[in-house]
Design a protein around this nucleic acid. Sequence first.
DNA 1: ACTTTTAGTCCATAATCTGTACTTATCCTG
DNA 2: CAGGATAAGTACAGATTATGGACTAAAAGT
Lengths: 380, 380
Amino acid sequence: MSSRGVRHDSMRARNLAVVLATIHRSGPHTRASLAERTGLTKTTVSSLVADLLEAGAVAESGAVRAGERGRPGVAVSLSGHRVAALGLEINIDYLAACVVDLTRTVRLRRIIPADNRNSDPAAILESLRALAKETTAEAAAAGLRVIGAALAVPGLVEGGMLRSAPHLGWRDVRVSDLVDVPFEIDNEANLAALGELWFGPRESDFLYVSGEIGIGAGLVVQGGVFKGTYGLAGELGHVVVVPDGPGCRCGGRGCLEVYAGQDALLGDLGSVRELVGRLESGDQAALEACRRAGHALGVALTSAVHLLDPGTIVLGGIFAPLFPWLAAPVSDGLGTRLAQMRGAPPDVVVSATGSDAAVLGAAGLVIQQIIAEPAKLLGL
Amino acid sequence: MSSRGVRHDSMRARNLAVVLATIHRSGPHTRASLAERTGLTKTTVSSLVADLLEAGAVAESGAVRAGERGRPGVAVSLSGHRVAALGLEINIDYLAACVVDLTRTVRLRRIIPADNRNSDPAAILESLRALAKETTAEAAAAGLRVIGAALAVPGLVEGGMLRSAPHLGWRDVRVSDLVDVPFEIDNEANLAALGELWFGPRESDFLYVSGEIGIGAGLVVQGGVFKGTYGLAGELGHVVVVPDGPGCRCGGRGCLEVYAGQDALLGDLGSVRELVGRLESGDQAALEACRRAGHALGVALTSAVHLLDPGTIVLGGIFAPLFPWLAAPVSDGLGTRLAQMRGAPPDVVVSATGSDAAVLGAAGLVIQQIIAEPAKLLGL
DNA sequence: ACTTTTAGTCCATAATCTGTACTTATCCTG
DNA sequence: CAGGATAAGTACAGATTATGGACTAAAAGT
């Protein structure tokens, strides 16, 4: 809770952020239109823009004629050529890194396949450090200064510490000294949801459903992920579908995960790719498995919609490739169950960012912080 | 989205709010301790406090000795003697009003019994206007200036307009000219949740469950109610308990409301009071009805906890008097279902504000706005 | 060429906060 | 009980930042 008073320097910091955020939200602006938008005077805006130019956050990009007459303004837009953010990801079977510039353009992408199940944290983190160093150097060669980084991990994060990552077999791992710029760590599902927000075609608030071995969900609202009191919100996989159904590893019964988790969907099959193959060739057992999962997903999402009221539902993770077969049963379930309560049920759409969502979200998180607090991160 | 720049006057407005909020959150402070807390200088704080004193928002209340030695400071605390807020409520069988001062002390309370089912909006609003006028006058007689009002209604509110209130039989009613101070209108369940926050013993975030004819819930997080994209969040009553259970008026099947709504609980009985009587005398049918409802509530709340992760669950509305019989089945259900996923399930407690929650929440909303923007509402 | 219009800058002024010095009030010590 | 130590609160000059009107710049229309 920010209970700090506003001093002169924080006033200026705030105004720098307001100007930068305005450019970020609604594209290139002239100083004059920025002044109108922000309610500041042209003089003040000029001075703020001068600082942002010097810091490399924005660039002038040619003349714009606003009305019919008069001197044309100079467009000021985000600069994609000076500062950048590093996104990192540790997952079950790979390490990934990406560099994203201020305009949210992906400038670099690296993936190292690896088997990280039940692995030694120290060794993996050493590889990740090397990857980060290499990627940062490559970015520097392209003229980009990496000024912040974030890491996505498949586990529960609390206070900058990885509390537990069951699939990696890690517990209470502190990740530090990974890079020599400000650094953050967050849950993969949360960051994937943000990746979809910033790198997908999303506009309004939505619920990102991430099917993996478990099923998670990230509610994106007002540009952030809703986390709950203990950071445990969004456990869609354990929403009750059948109150006295089969037992689940969580201790409950009839959870969504039992019906639509990766194990339930794949059955004897080895991979999602294999399942898609079967589905494409019309295999009845595979089609039936998808129908059942879709139905259960529809029931769980009905509860989620009543509680969270998201504008859109985005299916990601392994649900993305299965979307053609899941969409109908899910939408139908939502449609009939929600019919009377609201004009129309939320749209159910497929994730646009696919398996890159989490790394991109990590880099995007840093970009968002730069735009929210340019003075702090750009040293103004 | 506040994209306005900070000017000199908004800097001062913000600092007035910071000082007032600090006093509000952590009790009386001396100017010196306010300076330390807010990061402002003693000089600035003195000047801000002078303005707040003049506006009647705070009062000096005697000396405090902070350490062992030195000049004692003067305690500055919220003033309960100058400005106040008016809370109003329209419900099925009454109109209510209350006046609350800045310290959130209830100074006045009025209830007019009435049968408002399928009523004429104009007539009811006329009674309410009279009630508001009367109450404001009475407050004035006690030296309190009412500087804002809010109204709680049992229905869906959108953009300052009452879209629909099924139990009143109202649709698209615009409420205006009710009082001659800034005025707001909001949903009864939301305001009841806030009432519990501000007038009950709550500290952290919680989920307020309001049992009425339907079952609503308000998730209180960071001092506000989470509303969702279309303001429809918190419909706990239609969370799916049994996917192919009996049909519900919402179009779904097996919703919580079917098992734990007022109709399901009361059965042939006429009122909650009657049900409580039966329960107290050990009536088996009544006990069984409560057990069933409690079990269903436990299932629905399990889903809610997985999605929303509230720290505490507060049972209000008709669930409050039934709490002794509901608590065990609800807690047991949550406990077994949530066992593996988290250290402990959220506490399930009874509402402390009872049926006053909504009017109090309405008045509290205004108080909160005064504290959040003193410059605006106190004319500084 | 002259007017109109809009963009952007200059500079004196205004609003607000800061920092140091000062006054006030209390307790402690000898 | 005088003198010192300590802390609260105030006064005032100074620093920072935004404002507002005047000014310059660049384009279009006449």
